[in-house]
Computed example of a mutant assay.
Amino acid sequence: MPSPTQRALARIPERYKPFLVQHRKLVKFLLVGGTCFVLTTVIDLGLKFTVLQHKPVVALTVATVVATVVSYVLNRQWSFRANGRHREAILFFAVSALAVVVNDLPLILSRYVLDLREPDVTPLTQEIADFLSGMIIGTFLAMIFRFWAMNRWVFTRTGPAGSSAEDLEPERV
């Protein structure tokens, strides 16, 4: 029985398969990242419009930390297929803590340096500026940093046999 990855790859046009197989780690990382981006957005907006109305940086930080835990599990088990090590977890969360700061910096800049907040701007402008600076720009910068740092320092070992290109190849009958 083919794995979910093999079934998904079987639906991809042949001309794209070599690229996806060659960059499988990046593709998986981006899929995990997309999932965590949606999770971060939902938590951030939920917190901003309820209990943390006047603390947008705290809301984004909490949302990012929750998504980081989910990201660790998904990246460790699927994207990088790393062997279990305590050092790996410590490095992951150290890199992720730095990435949270990278993620928050554009929002801090937007809110408190550029003063894109009420009463200087309309509530709609404030929310658009928050979303663009925190969720789009911040997440993009943090994603680039995370991929580079995770590949370089955290998930440096390969997983069990068979976790290389074979797990992306469609099953041959």
Score class of each variant (00 low, 15 high):
Pro2Lys: 01
Pro4Met: 06
Gln6Met: 01
Gln6Cys: 00
Arg15Ser: 12
Arg15Trp: 08
Tyr16His: 11
Tyr16Trp: 15
Lys17Cys: 04
Lys17Gly: 00
Lys17Asp: 01
Phe19Glu: 03
Leu20Met: 14
Gln22Asn: 15
His23Phe: 11
Arg24Ser: 13
Val27Gln: 07
Lys28Val: 03
Phe29Asp: 06
Leu31Cys: 09
Val32Pro: 08
Cys36Lys: 03
Phe37Asn: 13
Val38Met: 09
Leu39His: 05
Thr40Asp: 12
Thr41Pro: 08
Asp44Ser: 01
Gly46Ser: 09
Gly46Trp: 04
Lys48Cys: 06
Phe49Trp: 10
Val51Cys: 03
Gln53Ile: 03
Pro56Thr: 04
Val58Phe: 10
Leu60Trp: 03
Thr64Ser: 12
Thr68Val: 02
Val69Cys: 12
Asn75Gln: 13
Arg76Gly: 13
Arg76Asp: 12
Arg76Asn: 14
Gln77Lys: 13
Trp78Pro: 06
Trp78Ile: 04
Trp78Glu: 08
Phe80Tyr: 01
Phe80Ile: 01
Arg81Lys: 09
Ala82Tyr: 05
Ala82Ile: 02
Asn83Phe: 00
His86Ala: 15
Ala89Val: 15
Ile90Val: 15
Leu91Met: 12
Phe93Trp: 07
Ala94Lys: 10
Ala94Ser: 15
Ala97His: 09
Leu98Cys: 12
Val100Leu: 10
Val101Glu: 07
Val102Gly: 05
Leu105Glu: 08
Leu105Ala: 11
Pro106Ala: 02
Ile108Lys: 02
Leu109Val: 13
Leu109Thr: 07
Asp115Gln: 14
Glu118Trp: 03
Glu118Ala: 03
Glu118Tyr: 02
Pro119Cys: 01
Asp120Phe: 14
Thr122His: 08
Thr122Asn: 09
Thr125Arg: 08
Leu132Ala: 12
Ser133Leu: 07
Ile137Cys: 08
Thr139Asp: 06
Thr139Met: 08
Phe140Lys: 05
Phe140Pro: 03
Ala142Thr: 02
Met143Tyr: 11
Met143Phe: 14
Ile144Trp: 10
Ile144Tyr: 03
Ile144Val: 14
Trp148Leu: 11
Ala149Pro: 08
Met150Gln: 13
Met150Thr: 01
Asn151His: 13
Arg152Thr: 11
Trp153Phe: 14
Thr158Leu: 12
Thr158Glu: 15
Leu168Cys: 06
Leu168Lys: 07
Leu168Phe: 15
Glu169Val: 07
Pro170Cys: 05
Arg172Ala: 13
